[in-house]
């Protein structure tokens, strides 16, 4: 996979505050999710990648070049910011046409693409003549997505693109992003709606406190996280007794008992200590086990785990 974005040992300070701390990763083709809680450094990272900020140390390259004030790189980027501010006095087609012109398109081509993009992002025609100051959050989000795509960029960066959209709108956006990815466009999406990132993105980057906590495909991240701890659901005849034995053996990070279903859910603090001794724990407790289920983590659970 050839990397579209390469970030090497990059840090960014705001005065004494560290926004990003020595992060390294690469983004290739397809859809990549950027996950992290507020203050994790997502916006800083996006601002650096889109050439709005410079890294304090380390390097970032897009298509092999630094993006800051570099028209050659910026020409190939489409950026959809999280902020909802749009020129409130303008109509969407005019705004998109202007941005198309700034991207080097001819006036006629920019005007046609503007209409085409407004159609593509599903902004109803009856709203096209309104000024954007009258738009709802969802409509603004659609226009922002339209301006991102007006010049057919090779790399698209979307900061919380699903914000303010209803479920249908989210589906529309997901469909557009998938079709773009199928066309060979690389896409980086930051979102707090993790379930959507999970279904959309093949790879993810998890940020916290300005550091990359985990990155790679979802399987790779799951494997990483599995090495740190594990969750199991055990159905047995006496979950309380089994819990006591495991607790005494100090292998639990936490547990939960469901009396109705005789289920013991455990979170292991030291899986490497637990699994070799598992049969011993069973013998020691004397319980009869009916079923053991490994808990497959959703992206949300992984995110909660690695950011906790």
């Amino acid at each position: 996979m050839s990397a579209v974005v390469e970030v090497k040992e990059m840090s960014r300070w705001y005065g004494l505050v560290m926004g990003l701390n020595n992060v390294s990763f690469a983004i290739g083709s397809g859809l990549t999710g950027l996950v992290g809680p507020n203050g994790a450094g997502k916006s800083t990272l996006i601002s650096i990648i889109t050439g709005q900020l410079k890294p304090s140390s380390g390097s970032v390259s897009l298509f092999g070049e630094a993006p800051f004030n570099n028209p050659k790189v910026l020409q190939r980027i489409g950026f959809c910011p999280e902020r909802e501010s749009l020129p409130v006095e303008m109509r969407p087609a005019d705004w998109l046409t202007g941005l198309g012109l700034l991207s080097g398109m001819s006036a006629a081509s920019a005007r046609m693409r503007a209409d085409e993009m407004l159609e593509r992002v599903g902004l109803a025609r009856e709203h096209w003549q309104k000024k954007m100051g009258e738009y709802s959050k969802g409509m603004r989000q659609r226009v922002k997505l339209g301006q991102t795509l007006i010049h057919n960029p090779d790399f698209v960066v979307l900061d919380e693109p699903m914000n303010g959209l209803d479920p249908m709108g989210r589906q529309d956006v997901a469909k557009i992003l998938k079709s773009l990815a199928a066309e060979g466009v690389s896409i980086l999406i930051s979102s707090h709606i993790l379930a959507e990132l999970e279904t959309l993105c093949e790879t993810n980057i998890i940020l916290n406190w300005g550091r990359v906590i985990a990155s790679g495909s979802q399987q790779e991240i799951r494997a990483d996280v599995r090495n740190w701890s594990e969750e199991l659901a055990i159905i047995c005849d006496d979950p309380q007794r089994l819990a006591k034995v495991l607790f005494d053996a100090e292998v639990l990070a936490g547990y939960d008992i469901n009396q109705q279903t005789d289920t013991l859910k455990i979170r292991l603090s030291e899986p490497e200590k637990f699994y070799p001794a598992w049969t011993g724990f069973l013998l020691q407790s004397g319980v009869t086990v009916y079923e053991v289920r490994g808990q497959s983590r959703s992206l949300k659970q992984i995110f909660e785990k690695v950011t906790s």
């Binding site: 028209p71 980027i77 012109l101 991207s103 398109m105 010049h151 090779d154």
Partner: peptide, 23 residues
């Protein structure tokens, strides 16, 4: 219509930039 961004002129000409800024 379907030309990719990388095929567009590197930076907008003065006239294109002027038109955009006028808007």
């Amino acid at each position: 219509q379907n030309v990719r961004a990388s095929d567009l002129e590197m930076s907008p000409s003065f006239i294109k930039g002027w038109l955009a800024m006028w808007m």
